[in-house]
Design a protein around this nucleic acid. Structure first.
Length: 480
DNA sequence: TTTTGAGTTGTTCGA
DNA sequence: GTCGAACAACTCAAA
């Protein structure tokens, strides 16, 4: 029997539109899919929860075409070397990742394999375009979104997705040892904090497609306005599926356009392009981090190195725990804690609050999101936090300080979102819901709210926080 | 090389 | 209540 091909799965946990898998299947040789739990790839506890279920789904899908999924732990280079030795594999195929540490790791692995006479081939990963494809007229990477997006559009539609293989694949007659998924301890036990996640999500390729189908059927229409309303179903919530590659960006692109053109989605071209533009932001973040690897820990705009951040654990804990006394902030932080997700509009508001009202370093917020989001993604997380902080590429101007009261009233006018995640305020009338500290004593009493007891008073007064933030930015400008 | 127009997502103030 | 201007200046990208 000819030597097996290792298919190294990473963040491409799908069978359809999987270039490495399709390429391997075309060879007619035995195939050995493997997933390596490399500590270098770990993001956080919520991601681990998702990964567990996504791997289980992938294993089921592979089984349908007659393939096993081998699970191993350790540094990828070592594990792949072991597997090559154990199985006699002469080819390793994978789809690319672009995070700085992993990209370097993979390049070293490829070079090492080639030096040993093995075939190692990588394929385009999970973006619309590879991060090095878009270039300015001067041949430089972009640092402003709009021209980047125009450049992407000018390249035309990305390649059409590859179909999932239907037929049975050939597996090696003897299989190497595999870890048991349940032994990896990816799921929480004591306490089991994942009940809200199980209720909110269906990880895996099938879950990704049914999520997209229902979004196209009734969520996409009116997207440009509805996407800002956290109590509405106006966003796709595909981000964790995209992060783990249960659906590729290219599939999402083509499925969306064909749905509106065939009438399967009642939405129009403008809503569809508004939606795909958000996918463009995902590519833009990866483009930025690929070309500026140190922005994961350093300010993209180095003038922010002089910013007077405040270290205050009590304030940080109040923010993280959803006890700031601002209902829209607390609802967002609790949505995150319960479901592993937060609506995009609310992410901006809570991030602005941490960085501007509390003057806490964006890196602390970024680390919290990385640990708690099921869609945690280095590139998106870092680029977005820096954007809010004002230190990032194409960032918000410093004087743009979100007012958590106005944001709540504007985007959650009927209080559906806040009442769901901050149930202790549910009986307050809309008028006071986003500023309970201004409610008359009688309204609070009727609603069963006791400020400072059943719900916190604001940990900072909005106007004070705003003025302090503007002063801090002014101080930084003088330093620089 | 120089110039020009533009830049995700907002808030506040005063007329 | 509504509306427009101010809030800074800078850097990017393309012509």
């Amino acid at each position: 029997m000819s030597s097996p091909i290792l298919i190294w799965f990473r963040r491409d946990l799908r069978l359809a539109d999987n270039p490495a898998l399709t390429h391997g299947l075309s060879k007619g040789r035995p195939m050995l899919p493997v997933f390596i739990r490399d500590p270098a790839e770990r993001l956080g506890a919520a991601s681990d929860w998702w990964l567990h279920h996504s791997l289980a789904a992938l294993a089921t899908g592979l089984e349908r075409i007659g393939l096993p999924l081998i699970l191993r732990q350790g540094p990828a280079e070592t594990v792949l070397g072991d597997l090559v030795a154990e199985t006699g594999a002469s080819t390793v195929l994978w789809n690319r990742l672009y995070d700085p540490p992993l990209q370097g790791r993979d390049a070293a692995i490829k070079a090492g394999m080639k030096a040993r006479g093995l075939e190692a081939v990588s394929f385009p990963g999970n973006l619309i375009r590879e991060p090095w494809e878009a270039k300015t007229g001067a041949g430089q990477p972009y640092s402003v979104f709009t021209p980047f997006w125009k450049a992407l559009l000018a390249m035309g539609d990305p390649p059409p997705p590859l179909p999932a293989s239907e037929g049975m694949a050939l597996a090696p007659t003897t299989l190497p040892r595999s870890d048991s998924l349940s032994d990896w301890g990816l799921l929480p036990t004591r306490p089991d904090w994942a009940a809200g996640m199980r209720a909110a999500w269906t990880p895996g390729e099938d879950g990704a497609h049914s999520r997209l189908d229902s979004f196209l059927a009734d969520g996409l229409i009116g997207y440009r306005k509805r996407r800002d309303i956290p109590g509405d179903r106006g966003v796709s919530r595909l981000s964790p599926h995209l992060h783990f590659g249960e659906m590729s960006a290219r599939q999402l692109w083509h499925i969306t356009l064909s749905a509106i053109r065939s009438g399967r989605s009642p939405a129009g071209e403008a809503d569809a392009m508004g939606f795909l533009r958000e996918l463009g932001w995902r590519d833009f973040s990866h483009h930025l981090l690929f070309h500026h690897p140190d922005m994961e820990t350093m300010n993209f705009n180095r003038r922010f190195d002089a910013f007077p951040w405040v270290q205050d654990d009590a304030l940080f804990q109040a923010w993280a725990g959803g006890r700031t006394g601002f209902p829209i902030i607390d609802a967002g932080m609790r949505e995150l804690w319960i479901t592993g997700y937060m609506h995009n509009r609310v992410r901006m508001v809570v991030a602005s609050f941490l960085v501007k009202h509390l003057l806490i370093d964006w890196r602390r917020g970024e680390a919290w999101f990385r640990d708690t989001l099921v869609d945690a993604d280095r590139a998106n997380n870092v680029a977005s936090w820096q954007w809010v902080a004002g230190s990032g590429a194409d960032a918000a101007p410093y004087f743009r300080v979100f007012n958590p009261i106005i944001q709540g009233e504007k985007f959650d006018p009927d209080g559906r979102y806040v009442r769901h995640y901050v149930p202790e305020l549910a009986k307050l009338p809309d008028r006071w819901l986003h500023k309970p500290w201004e409610a008359p004593r009688q309204d609070l009493a009727i609603a069963g709210v006791t400020l400072g007891s059943t719900y916190p008073r604001p940990i900072v007064e909005h106007t004070v926080g705003r003025e302090r933030a503007l002063a801090a930015y002014a101080e930084m400008r003088e330093e620089g």
